[in-house]
Amino acid sequence: MTDQPLTILLLEDQSLVRAGMRALVQISEPHAHVLEAASYEEAVAQAESTSIDIAFLDIDLKDSRSGLDFLRWLRVRELDTRAIMLSGRAEKDIVMACLNEGASGYILKDMESDGVFRRALDTVFQGSIYLPASVIGRGGFSPALPAAPVPVSPESLGVTGRALEVLYYVCQGLPNKSIARNMGIEEGTVRKDYLPKLFRIFKVVRRTELLIEVSRRGIAIPQPALLPDTVR
């Protein structure tokens, strides 16, 4: 993450849960500017008035529109907001649906202790992806394990330069069009050159599988401004 304070949105309709989340977020990121929303409409209003770095979105709101609807709203407008879904449900199909819509993480709200939830938050703030065990499978980084995996650097896997930038934006949940705009390149270059290269390196065939591998290996992806000045 950058040295600038993060602007973080908490979309959660239960005030007590939201207050507890706010306290944990401020422990992990004490300088963050934390915004709150209890509904889809409030979240939209916050996003329209402020640039949000990370949004923690409750999937099941007591509203006609959900946190997943707000995620779709973010992606349609091509906003560079990293969206982390919050839910009490760990079914793989639900998690995968969120990843397909552009989420870049999924945290279970019914974890056994605040310590585990804080570890999930720390994983997100360090630039990696947190996913439940139902998705990353046996041996991966899951709430049931006592410790996080040994971090792997993307450079050690051969992911450097522009390919590393693309990996960062993929992990942000951005579509190819937004990635190309941010990098000043053609969308076809992202789709035909960089994504296939990343798929080969991680031995996957689609973007959701790439996110799962990043989570499983505990890879933290630096923001493009922090990337070393390498030959591209």
Rank of each mutant, 00 (worst) to 15 (best):
R119W: 03
S134Q: 14
C171I: 01
E48R: 10
D114A: 14
M183A: 09
D53Y: 04
G188N: 09
L226D: 15
G188H: 02
G137H: 11
R200L: 12
I54M: 02
L211T: 04
G127E: 08
L211P: 05
R65A: 08
V124K: 04
D60C: 07
L9R: 03
L9A: 01
T208I: 13
H31F: 03
A148R: 05
V34P: 00
E165H: 12
L61V: 09
E78T: 02
S113I: 11
F199G: 08
P175I: 01
S156H: 12
V166L: 14
W73G: 04
R181G: 03
R118L: 15
L195A: 03
L68K: 09
S156Y: 08
L61N: 13
A55C: 04
M21P: 02
P132L: 09
P224E: 15
L61K: 10
A55W: 03
M85G: 06
I84P: 02
S39E: 00
R216I: 01
R119K: 13
I84Q: 01
E12Y: 05
D93I: 10
M21C: 07
R206A: 13
E187G: 14
M183K: 04
V231F: 02
A32I: 02
V150K: 14
R207Q: 15
P146I: 13
T2E: 12
G184E: 03
F117C: 05
Q126N: 14
F56C: 01
K203A: 14
I179M: 06
D93T: 13
T230L: 12
P224H: 15
L131Y: 08
L167N: 03
L9P: 03
R119F: 01
R216N: 10
I84T: 00
L108S: 08
V34E: 00
R18W: 00
L195P: 04
S142C: 12
A43I: 00
R207A: 12
A133C: 06
L6H: 07
E101C: 08
A103Q: 08
P5G: 04
